[in-house]
Amino acid sequence: APLSPTSALPPYFMKGSIIQLADGELKRVEDLRTEDFLQSAEVSGELKIDSSTVERIDTSRTPDAVIIQFSVGEHKAQVCVEVLVEYPFFVFGQGWSSCCPDRTTQLLALSCAKLSVGDVCISLTLKSLR
C-alpha cells in the first residue's frame, strides 16, 4: 500500500525536531527519555503523567490505521484511539514505539520499537481532573 504522507503526522515527531522541556531545556525528539517527561510534569504543576497500558491492538477499517485500547491511569479507564500505524507513543523505559516501526522510521527517520499489548505508555492528564 502506498505510504501515507508525512503530513498526516505532527511535525514534532520528525527526527531532529527541537522539543522544549518544562524547565526550558531543549532536546531533540529522538533523545528524549522517560525522566524528561516525568520531570517536566513535575515542573509544569498543571499536568500529571498517567500510565496507559496497551490492552488491545485491532485493525481498523481506515486504511493504514489501527484501534488501540488503553487502560488509563489509576482508575484504569478504558479508552480506544484510532491512529495511523506509524504513530509513535512513548513507552516507559523503552522510548518511542509504534505499531509499524519500519514505517515510522521510513517517514520520520525516528527509530522506533514495536508497540505491543502490555506496553505502558506515557499519557497526560490535568492535575485538576478528579
Binding site: 527541537i18 517527561f37 509544569s44 496507559s52
Partner: peptide, 25 residues
C-alpha cells in the same frame, strides 16, 4: 553567507496524548 532560519520548537506536552476521560472539576 548562511541565512539565519528559524527552527520550530515544540513543547514537550505536545508529544504525548491526553487519554484520561474523567470530567473536570
Amino acid at each position: 553567507n548562511v541565512e539565519p532560519r528559524s527552527v520550530p520548537v515544540f513543547p514537550w506536552h505536545s508529544l504525548v496524548p491526553f487519554l484520561e476521560t474523567s470530567q473536570s472539576n
